[in-house]
């Protein structure tokens, strides 16, 4: 609780910087307009104008907030929450791809990690590649996956989900391998003295002790999945989803739209990671591992 005040101060400072930057960046356009009309503007008029431009270089925070409200809350009140102009609809398109991809990627990642821990040949052949793959800009292949799957006739949610799955896969593999190996020799030996079978050792020792690692990598994987889904929406030509809103905004110079899509994505990411954090808190507490 004692860090509420510092956090608020920092957020306030960021907002103040943002307003200042908005005035600086948008001033030129205002001055040009005034010069063309042959007017002289006072400082107050300039500042007021920079806050309310149609296509500002940097929209002021309240403009972004208003656009966010207009495309979400206001549309819900009008009963048009799932129309094409609504960010809720675009957000849902992105979210569904993210969640499907995250599910697939996490599931496969855990399976591979179990295989790696129990099979030495798999460990030695796959593990170096799984680690190396984290240093590779995997996101670069997103456009290709989309276009190739499109030409085979698969479009819509699945290609984006595949990219998401791919991005969340490797963090989960690496994290879970570390987690499943985290019980120390002594504990494993103890289970052997009980003559526990490998599956008992897995369910009673390895799996529970991998939980903290699992949740950490789930958070990383979830953030990566969302980025994957957003980038996956770029090559389809700005039709649906938050990524499409970003691209369309950049085509038509609609900066307010870009910023509101960006904030929607940020809120989505924060919520998803927050939910995992909450589940982590509850699970670890019930398992007696809370720190």
């Amino acid at each position: 609780m004692r860090s509420v005040l510092p956090i608020l101060t920092v957020v306030m400072a960021i907002l103040a910087l943002w307003y200042g930057a908005a005035v600086m960046l948008n001033r030129q356009w205002t001055l040009d307009q005034a010069a063309r009309a042959g007017q002289d503007l006072t400082i107050a008029q300039i500042v007021a104008d920079t806050m309310a431009q149609e296509r500002p270089k940097l929209p002021a925070p309240h403009q972004v907030g208003a656009e966010l409200w207009n495309t979400t809350g206001a549309m819900v009140l009008e009963g048009r929450a799932f129309t094409r102009r609504s960010l809720i609809w675009h957000g849902w398109v992105t979210l569904s791809a993210t969640l499907v991809g995250f599910g697939i990627g996490t599931g496969l990642g855990i399976l591979l990690a179990v295989g790696i821990v129990h099979n030495r040949a798999m460990d030695m052949s796959v593990m170096p590649w799984a680690i190396a793959s984290q240093t590779i800009p995997i996101l670069a292949i997103a456009p290709m996956i989309i276009v190739v799957l499109n030409s085979v006739g698969i479009s819509g949610l699945l290609p984006k989900a595949i990219i998401s799955a791919y991005l969340s896969f490797f963090p989960v593999v690496v994290g879970m391998v570390a987690g499943l190996r985290s019980p120390d020799r002594m504990q494993l030996d103890l289970l052997r003295t009980y003559s526990a079978s490998p599956s008992q050792a897995f369910w009673k020792l390895r799996w529970p002790s991998s939980m903290p690692y699992l949740f950490t990598s789930l958070k990383v994987g979830m953030a990566a999945s969302l980025v994957g889904a957003i980038v996956g929406e770029l090559p389809t030509g700005a039709v649906r989803g938050l990524g499409a809103r970003l691209l369309a905004g950049s085509y038509y110079g609609q900066t307010v739209q870009i910023w509101s899509a960006l904030f929607a994505a940020a809120i989505l990411a924060a919520t998803l990671v927050g939910i995992i954090g909450l589940i982590q808190r509850i699970t670890l507490k019930r398992m007696g591992m809370a720190r």
Binding site: L139, K219, A223, L226, V227, I230, V231, L242, L246, A261, L262, A265, A266, A269, A270, V273
Partner: peptide, 8 residues
């Protein structure tokens, strides 16, 4: 943790 790539 945010998708900063969106600022591109």
């Amino acid at each position: 943790a945010l998708p900063i790539i969106g600022t591109a």
